[in-house]
Design a protein around this nucleic acid. Structure first.
Length: 544
RNA sequence: GUCCCCAUAGUUCAACGGAUAGAACAGCGGAUUCCUAAUCCGCAGAUGAAGGUUCGAUUCCUUCUGGGGAUACCA
């Protein structure tokens, strides 16, 4: 990265000047062509050296200019910015490297980490809100992977709790009503049409076997049947978005294999539980400034909290370096409770990182609607994918800062998909493919490049600078998890390319030397676009 | 009440404490004898309010206003 290169030059120079303890300074691409790159280092040193930042900057620039072959000019501007104007040689070297290493941003994987996301109640079709999380999680995993982490994607399915029992009973009602009975969906049950379809399928299989019959083993059957049916649907939805999980973890397995009981026993031994009002409580307040929470309800059933503790202990014992949980904003209350539980089992907080994202508001027929799976009134992710396609769906979700509520205008998404900027980025990629087609028709090859010194225009320099930002963007996402920086970047890169394209003829038979260098530049742009799109899980078409 | 997230152009979104706050869509005006006009160029348009910290604040702190979420023996 050019920025890092300048940074190192600066550090060396400061060292030469005898300045120790160099503060954490920045090198950035300034607005308005103040320079190719700029740094704020002089401001940060000013307090320590008790000097005017301008004088410090002047001093640094003098020392740096010993490197005549790399810097055309170094200006000190404003109150003390250092503005660097680089020699073509620098760009040429960096572009050459990127051109020769088509996947220059990839790093070897080492750290083993776990991502849990899209863990929903398997009680119905996936909503658009959860679609955001699924797409977000998948893309974040891709980025971690490409920057050197060994990532596992895991989905946790709550198939042991109250909701699954409600689902099973709701299915039973739908099934019975196919026989002209008239049972009511239970309070809080699932009223969506989709259970009628499942009930019909079940009727074909078992005929009238359970009509008007209900006991605990029949309930188990319906719970299980409904769960499997819903899960099949979920898998299909994820498949349509190319989201694949390495591990599917079922809550029930923790109950069945005794993990949950083991957790209970240990907590009791540590004297961290107590009974009250017929329920068993965990002393959360011992660890965090939070209310105590129920582990076993007075009806004898386990809470989600209890099984989730067992689940996270299980994660820890699988020896990942870190575990990331991606959750909707409605889970904020869960964070401290889970850390309290980890604390009780001597698991360091640093092991688990929560990433919260806000949910999606839907706009349909000009109205903002609230989604609710249980009311049976919601927009499914499948509908969206059918309407706008996989690429646009993934790209659209990726574009938003996860911390902000996003407004999803369904009518707009369904009608005018051309407004989606994914096409803008894809078009830049396709355009480049076409340039190569054109070049090969004119018998211009581009395989004997040794330098790129003819790429002197503003457009070309800016394009090289923009390519050079890619790795930096990816690394910053590892820190703040804002994947929208990637879509933002790709749009910007595409824009620089479109601008370059419209101003310069790339394949020019009268100037083969420049043509070859421009083709190499195009190749580097295309590789980067393709790399970014593939991290997003969006296709990079050759034609549009 | 308390806690968490958010508030930027008509709309949907950007901006690592930096210099003149960027795009896209919508609006207006242009560009194609030449590699795809799904493109490009130009015009117009914004930091919710008030304080504070700083050489410098959309960004950090406080208060207020507005939206969403949490405050379950739901998950």
């Amino acid at each position: 990265m050019i920025k890092n290169w300048i940074r190192e030059k600066l550090i060396k120079t400061l060292d030469k000047m005898g300045i120790e303890e160099i503060p954490d300074f920045k090198v950035e691409i300034p607005l308005n062509n103040f320079g190719d790159y700029s740094s704020n280092i002089a401001f940060l040193l000013s307090k320590k050296l008790k000097q005017n930042p301008r004088n410090i900057a002047l001093d640094i620039s003098k020392h740096l200019l010993d490197d005549k072959e790399y810097f055309n000019k170094i200006e000190v501007a404003g109150p003390g910015f250092l503005n660097f104007f680089l020699n073509e040689k620098v760009y040429s070297e960096f572009l050459f490297f990127e051109y020769e290493n088509p996947q220059y941003w990839k790093k070897a994987n080492n750290k083993k980490i776990l991502f849990e996301f899209a863990s929903v109640n398997p009680t119905g079709p996936i909503t658009i809100g959860h679609g955001r999380q699924a797409v977000y999680g998948d893309i974040l995993c891709n980025i971690f992977q490409t920057r050197g982490h060994s990532v596992e994607r895991e989905i946790y399915l709550n198939n042991a709790g109250k909701q699954i029992r409600l689902l099973g009973r709701s299915l039973w009602v739908r099934y019975n009503n196919l026989f002209k009975n008239n049972y009511d969906i239970p309070e809080g049950g699932y009223k969506g049409e989709y259970l009628i379809q499942t009930a019909k399928k079940l009727k074909d299989e078992i005929k009238d076997k359970f009509v008007d019959k209900w006991d605990s083993s029949i309930a188990d059957f319906f719970n299980q049947y409904a769960f499997e049916a819903m899960f099949e649907g979920m898998k299909e939805t994820f498949d349509n978005l190319s989201i694949k999980f390495n591990n599917i973890f079922k809550e029930k397995s923790l109950v069945d294999d005794g993990s949950v009981d083991k957790v209970l026993k240990e907590l009791e031994e540590k004297n961290l539980t107590y009974e009250s009002e017929g329920a068993l409580w965990f002393k959360v307040s011992r660890f965090k400034d939070e209310k105590d929470k129920v582990l076993i309800k007075s009806d004898g059933y386990y809470t989600y909290y209890l099984t989730d503790i067992a689940y996270h202990i299980n994660k820890y014992n699988r020896s990942y370096e870190k575990a990331y949980d991606i959750l909707g904003a409605d889970h904020v209350g869960h964070l401290d409770r889970m850390y309290a539980a980890l604390d009780a089992f001597d698991i360091p907080e640093s092991f688990l990182i929560f990433i919260l994202h806000q949910y999606v508001n839907l706009k349909k027929n000009g109205e903002i609607i609230k989604m609710s799976t249980r009311a049976g009134n919601f927009e499914t992710l499948d509908d969206l994918v059918i309407a706008v396609g996989k690429d646009a769906t993934r790209y659209f979700f990726a574009r938003f800062d996860p911390d902000t509520q996003m407004l999803f205008d369904i009518d707009l998404a369904k009608q005018k998909t051309n407004e989606n900027p994914v096409f803008y980025v894809q078009y830049a990629h396709a355009r480049i493919s076409n340039i190569f087609k054109n070049a090969s028709e004119k018998n211009v090859s581009f395989d004997e490049i040794s330098t790129m010194k003819n790429l002197n225009s503003e457009e070309e320099k800016n394009l090289i600078k923009e390519i050079d930002r890619f790795e930096e963007i990816l690394d910053s996402i590892l820190i703040d998890y804002k994947i929208n920086k990637l879509t933002n970047y790709l749009e910007s890169l595409a824009s620089f390319f479109h601008g370059f394209y419209s101003k310069h003829i790339i394949v020019d038979e009268n100037d083969i030397k420049t043509t070859k260098e421009r083709l190499a530049l195009c190749k580097a742009v295309q590789n980067t676009l393709k790399g970014g799109l593939s991290l997003l899980g969006v296709s990079a078409p050759e034609n549009m």
